[in-house]
Write a protein that binds this DNA or RNA. Sequence first.
DNA 1: ATCTTAGCTTAGACTCTGTCTAAACAAAGA
DNA 2: TCTTTGTTTAGACAGAGTCTAAGCTAAGAT
Lengths: 143, 143
Amino acid sequence: MSDLVERLRKHRWRMTPQRRVIAETLDGAHVHYTADEILDRACARMPEISRATVYNTLNEMVALGEVLELNFDGRSKRYDPNVEHDHHHLICEGCGITKDVHTVADPLDWLPGDERHGFAVTEASITFRGLCPECRRGEHRRS
Amino acid sequence: MSDLVERLRKHRWRMTPQRRVIAETLDGAHVHYTADEILDRACARMPEISRATVYNTLNEMVALGEVLELNFDGRSKRYDPNVEHDHHHLICEGCGITKDVHTVADPLDWLPGDERHGFAVTEASITFRGLCPECRRGEHRRS
DNA sequence: ATCTTAGCTTAGACTCTGTCTAAACAAAGA
DNA sequence: TCTTTGTTTAGACAGAGTCTAAGCTAAGAT
């Protein structure tokens, strides 16, 4: 069921119970959690799991290239098990919820040569911001 | 000389010596500093200035809409006195230097309705990443 | 001039994320 | 079973930023 677990296995990475819980928590989510949200959810299934393990494991998954680390609000990082290259992110200014989205064009093509300042530009990602349906009606508190 | 100081005045915002030093530091820069870098530079001109004042002042400028708060590395925020709406950012993966750039089209138009998940999408910004000319030849250390 | 009041600045304590350390704990091969 | 290597843990630590309570300053009212 968990595609991420499969992908991690391929790296000959030792799959421990802790790592499995973390990977499954990540992979099952339709939104991108912060490390602490993942810790909470992992704790629900395995109460003895430690904060250090969650942080270590997330960093290792990022290093293996199987998880993306996102950073939008300047506070906490969020983790995205979708490493497909051509996707972007939509963030709610109200509650911080983060979703993957796809655009109709590749933004790399839209930066003219004379705006590149001699850089070798290799990547472009778009951050869309707005209010999610819940936050549009009623006020919501940022978690 | 300082355009930002002028813009802030227009908000009937009390211009104190501390705020002037901070605004001039920000506005004189051709790259985007972190709060601590601004503190260092402000201290060079006014050694008694406090950290709290720098942070408060930057947040107020952001709230007034005259300065943009940027966040790329997940560590520290950077401040951009250019609030012109339609610009984006180009960041060097080597040294972290950050420049303003312009694209040929507005990315808001590239997100189809069925990718909006019911959000009211109001803003889109692109982060371009690559290597700056200095970092392309020779190795450079991230500051 | 001076008083009053609102707003600004300050030092330092605090919070929140995230990292590091050292010790205890598994697991796999010899 | 022993050894080696890798994993997990609690808690100490670090960096960035916020908050608090006190003192200070400036502008308008008298």
